[in-house]
């Protein structure tokens, strides 16, 4: 039985004929829509590799039943850069070597974008580390990740002020 699902993904509204009610948002993005930037690491909300923004909030796409998010606005890693211009968080991850194998990176970056928007961690490294702890990095690029988030926070604060 096909059910209809409306999602606004990276600014574009799509009507999706969903072939299976069991599909998670993660599997819809990856397997149905070809948006494979969002990664599956554990499929159980335990690693953060699938982090996307749903209506502006970071969530694990693997534990989001797609049908339950009918009408939602979803931002994925594919929706961050403007053309060739990287988002400040992407740029900071690149400069601070906030990744190695790159597999957790889209999730880290989406989580960091949300962390900065939440405006609760600010420039306190302790709060940044805590706030990024839902994103495991097995290569353990944590030092670079924390530096990148702090750097991007500074950049984006400046941009906001300007």
């Amino acid at each position: 039985m096909t059910q209809t699902l409306n999602l606004t993904i990276n600014g574009t509204t799509q009507t999706i004929a969903l072939d299976d009610p069991r599909a998670t948002l993660l599997d819809v993005l990856r397997e149905r829509l070809g948006l494979t930037g969002t990664k599956k690491g554990c499929d159980r909300g335990q690693c953060g590799a699938c982090t996307v923004l749903i209506d502006g909030r970071r969530m694990n796409a693997c534990l989001a039943l797609a049908l339950s998010h009918d009408g939602a606005a979803v931002t994925t890693i594919e929706g961050l850069a403007e053309g060739d211009r990287l988002h400040p968080v992407q740029d900071a991850f690149l400069r601070h070597d906030g990744f190695q194998c790159g597999y957790c990176t889209p999730g880290q970056i989406m989580s960091a974008v949300a962390l900065i928007a939440e405006a609760e961690a600010g420039l306190d490294p302790e709060r940044v580390r805590e706030g990024m702890s839902g994103n495991l990095c097995r290569c353990a690029a944590y030092a670079g990740i924390t530096e990148a988030v702090l750097d991007a926070t500074r950049t984006m604060t400046r941009e906001d002020a300007a």
Binding site: G45, G48, T51, I54, R57, R58, M59, N60, L63, A64, S111, A114, L115, E118, G131, S133, G134, N135
Partner: peptide, 9 residues
């Protein structure tokens, strides 16, 4: 408890 992502959901 949990992570920021899980607490949002």
């Amino acid at each position: 408890g949990a992570s920021a992502q899980l607490r949002n959901a």
